[in-house]
Design a protein around this nucleic acid. Structure first.
Lengths: 188, 188
DNA sequence: CGTGGCTTTTTACAAATGTTAAAAAATGAA
DNA sequence: TTCATTTTTTAACATTTGTAAAAAGCCACG
């Protein structure tokens, strides 16, 4: 569970005791490529650490399906909206490869938050880190054109890009696959 | 301090003791319309509760300035990026009206997080709530056209809209002011 | 090897949005 | 009220992006 362990420790430093409290709650699970780990419209009761694999989150519009997040080794799969509001989420998350995940029930997590200040602060840090990542994607998308953001992606996530079909990347960048093809032709 | 108090309590229920620990750290301050309360490129050491007034956050691109957030009574002004990474932020925040704010030094807040589990969980909830708000704006922007989002804004924030110049709203919606004018002409 | 299915690129045309500039409307101070 | 300033709308044209369909490329399996 190397990747997961590194991820947990990287969020906020934990003493061995508190780390173990958290680890004890994890349950390993394997899922095949194409598996929908989160379904929109359902209240989610778990989060997952990606030990191995790639995932994407998307929302369905009237006549389109838009990808807004990719995750890989060390990332966390969680429908925040559903978890925080305790209501059905609007996003679905599917696995793009055969994957190994560690499941953590949100109920168990909440219990830890309420009894250990170290873990409450770990949870705070987790939310804060995801918050700024989300904000950065949001702002990047606001004022950089798709071409520039594609180049950014190539530089910051060269490995991730190779594991994901172009259509999903186009959707993530906010353009059609045709436009992304045009961009790729331009920058070659 | 009605609005601020309501905001703090609304985030996560606090007992009188812990609420007072937090309130003791607040410092009231008045600022004129047009004041820049957060400047990009600076490390921020405070957050502010808006007791009275309106604010907008923006980032500067090469040849444009994009508004990505509006806040009013009960909202919190905070450069998350700067606060969490302890590095200069990329956004600026300015007041669009004469405003009354309550300042809270992040140093004092951190100290409370490290000594009181109730406040650590309050801080976690704060980050979580802002996270899902950010995610919702992000996703809404992804797959709803500007017209639809303008109509949404009219319905969800009718009062706020009246207090903000159209150019800022257009920027927030991701279109030019000309396009927003066209939209307004259409839906009348 | 080939063949079928899937992904990516190309093309031609249509629609939406941006740019620039100017006119009209609204606002606020004297 | 009136005038000056700011904000909003309108117009004409250019550019970008989308749509739909066909072509090309890639890969796995028989």
């Amino acid at each position: 569970m190397q990747n997961t362990l590194k991820s947990i420790k990287g969020i906020y430093p934990l003493k061995e005791v508190h780390l173990n409290l958290l680890l004890k709650k994890l349950k390993e699970a394997e899922f095949p490529k194409g598996h929908q780990i989160i379904r929109s419209g359902k209240v989610e009761r778990s989060l997952y650490f990606i030990e191995r694999g790639v995932a994407r989150a998307y929302v369905d519009g009237k006549d389109n399906r838009i990808t807004f997040w990719f995750g890989m080794e060390g990332d966390i799969i969680l429908s925040y909206h559903s978890y925080i509001n305790n209501t059905p989420g609007y996003e679905s998350i599917e696995l793009l490869e055969n994957s190994t995940l560690y499941e953590l029930r949100t109920e168990a997590l909440e219990a830890l938050y309420n009894t250990h200040i170290e873990l409450a602060n770990w949870g705070r840090k987790l939310a804060e880190l995801i918050l700024i990542k989300t904000e950065e994607s949001y702002i990047g998308r606001l004022f950089k054109p798709a071409k520039e953001r594609y180049i950014d992606l190539l530089q910051t996530e060269p490995l991730l890009i190779q594991r994901i079909p172009l259509g999903h990347i186009a959707s993530y960048l906010g353009v059609t696959q045709v436009t992304l093809s045009r961009i790729r032709a331009e920058i070659k």
